[in-house]
Each structure stands twice: as C-alpha cells, then as structure tokens.
C-alpha cells in the first residue's frame, strides 16, 4: 500500500465520516432537545438528496437559486416532520411510541420519494466538473489524485458542523434552546416557547442532514436506499460516547475511515467490519470514547 492509496482512502473515509457526523450530530441535538431517537434520520438525508437532485437536474436551476430554495424546502420538511411525527406524541405515556413513529416516518418518506421521483436510481452531476471532459473534477495534490467531490464534502461538512456547534455551545440563542430542552417547565415559566425551540432544532437538524444528502448524491446514485446510511451514524454516536457531540463527530469520522480502509481487504464485509469495531469498542469501553461513567439518578 503506497502513500497515494493511503491518502486517497483517508480522504474518502473522512468525507463519508463527515456525512455520518452530520447525521450523528443531528441525532444528538434531537436526543437533547426532545429525548427521542430518530430512526428516520437516514431517510431525511435521502429526501434531501432527491430534493436537491430535482432542483438541479429537473429544474436546471443555477447554484445561487438552487441553494436558498433547497434550504427553504429543508426547513419546511423539518417543520412538517416535527408536527406530524413528534408533536402529536410529545405527551405520550409510552416513550417507545415516539421512537416507533419515527420508524413509520422512515417508511413513509421512502415511499413518498419513490412516488414522486420513481424507483430508479437517479444520477446527480458533481459540484465541480472538469470543463474539458465534463467528468468529475480531480484535485491533483503533490501527485496524489483526489476527487473534488470528496474534498468539497469534507469542507462543507466541517463548516456546517462548526456553525451548528458554535450556535449551540457558544451563542445565547443556542444555549437558551438547550436550557429549554433540559427543563421544559422552567422554560415555559421564563417565557421561552418550547414549540419554537423544538421547531428550530428540527429545522437545523433537517438542514444538516439534507445537506449531507446533497453532498453525497454525486458520489452514490440518488435512490431510496440511501437511508440505510443512518446505521453508520448510529454507530458513530455509540463509539463517541453517550450524548456527546464532539464524541459523535469523532466516532463518525472513525467509522468513515474504518469503512474506507476495510475496502482494501474485505470489501464484501465492509458493514461487518464497521460494526465489529463498534461491538469490540463496546466491550472495552462501554461508555464510548468521550463518555463518562455517570451514576444513575436515584
């Protein structure tokens, strides 16, 4: 294995890791805000890929119109998702009900996508094309050839993650949202409407995840099976540590890298390798990389 392969496998791995990290971070934001797992995370990504594909390929919109339109539709999807899948269940006596309803939402999303855009995989042109050949542009870095799409995915993913991280950890609005999530009653007393903070969280999460879908669309085909990528994000969350955003991001990147490098030896068992790493990890450090052992609240 020469240095070329190592670098390009790393770049591929980190790019995929970024996609998983976007989903994983969204998962943790939702868990923090409403305390519920979202099993439709991957299908939201799939939907985002289809929406951007429709805007770019079917409507042939230029990038500067496409992006704001896409963001608006993501926000709308986020709000609809919240009001159909979560809001009616927010006072459910049976906590698992909320989780199961996201599974229903995953099926519904998959089927809506199929009904609108058909069941055949669609192809999406890469963001950067070679002007001469019209094929995906290649970045030549000291003789190492890298796909621009992967590099861009890393950049876009990192920027987006950084923005959301700053919003939630540093800015007043984000801290308020977290405070509202942790103590709904106190938040209502302080006049922070939970409905707004919850909706804002959903919008941010769907934008993150759907952007992931947009970045990944040229790499894979756009199809309704993209949703299964969420399983890797789940793995990232567990590896990172319970409820820890930094951990989830790093865990997701590890998953991306493991997956990428495992293709050399056992590409058939890519999935197995990823999840065996996960299970081995759980054996050694059940609280995850960044998790701390927390005593149960009595």
């Amino acid at each position: 294995m020469n240095i070329n392969t190592i670098v390009s496998l790393s770049v591929n791995g980190i790019a995929m890791g970024m996609i998983y990290a976007l989903m994983a971070m969204g998962l943790i934001l939702l868990i923090r805000a409403i305390g519920v797992m979202n099993f439709a995370q991957g299908d939201l990504l799939m939907f985002g890929a289809f929406v951007t594909c429709a805007l770019t390929v079917d409507l042939k919109l230029p990038l500067w119109i496409m992006i704001p339109l896409a963001l608006i539709s993501f926000a709308v999807i986020g709000v609809i998702f919240m009001f159909t899948v979560y809001w009616p269940l927010k006072d459910a006596t049976y906590p698992t009900a909320t989780v199961i309803s996201t599974m229903g939402a995953a099926m519904a999303l998959k089927e809506i996508a199929t009904l609108i855009w058909g069941s055949l995989p669609r192809s999406m042109p890469p963001l950067m094309k070679n002007p001469k050949t019209g094929k995906a542009a290649v970045l030549n870095l000291f003789g190492i050839k890298l796909q621009w799409q992967f590099v861009l995915t890393i950049i876009v993913g990192a920027v987006l993650i950084w923005l959301v991280f700053v919003l939630f950890e540093k800015l007043y609005a984000g801290r308020m949202m977290q405070a509202a999530a942790q103590d709904k009653y106190a938040a209502e007393l302080l006049g922070i409407p939970t409905i707004l903070t919850t909706a804002a969280t959903y919008i941010i999460v769907v934008i993150m995840v759907s952007t992931g879908g947009y970045m990944i669309a040229p790499i894979f085909m756009v199809s309704n099976t993209l949703g299964s990528l969420q399983l890797r994000a789940f793995a990232g969350v567990v590896i990172g540590g319970l409820g820890n955003i930094k951990g989830a991001i790093i865990g997701s990147l590890i998953i991306g890298l493991v997956e990428s490098f495992s293709t050399i030896q056992f590409s058939q068992y890519k999935d197995a390798v990823v999840f065996i790493v996960l299970i081995a990890m759980l054996l050694v450090r059940p609280q995850g990389l960044f998790g701390e052992k927390v005593a149960d609240k009595a």
Partner: peptide, 27 residues
C-alpha cells in the same frame, strides 16, 4: 455484551449486531 449498554445505546448496538449478521448471511 450488549447489555453493558442501556436504553437507546443498547438499541443502537443491536442494530450493529443486525448489520454484522446480515452482511455475513449475505456474503
């Protein structure tokens, strides 16, 4: 092994098990 984890994280780990077993069943 799996019940070293609790709640949602246990659920995640069972998904991991499903993926591992499935890819072996497939390949």
């Amino acid at each position: 092994i799996l019940f070293r984890l609790k709640g949602t994280y246990f659920t995640f780990a069972t998904i991991g098990l499903v993926q591992v077993s499935w890819s072996f069943y497939l390949s």
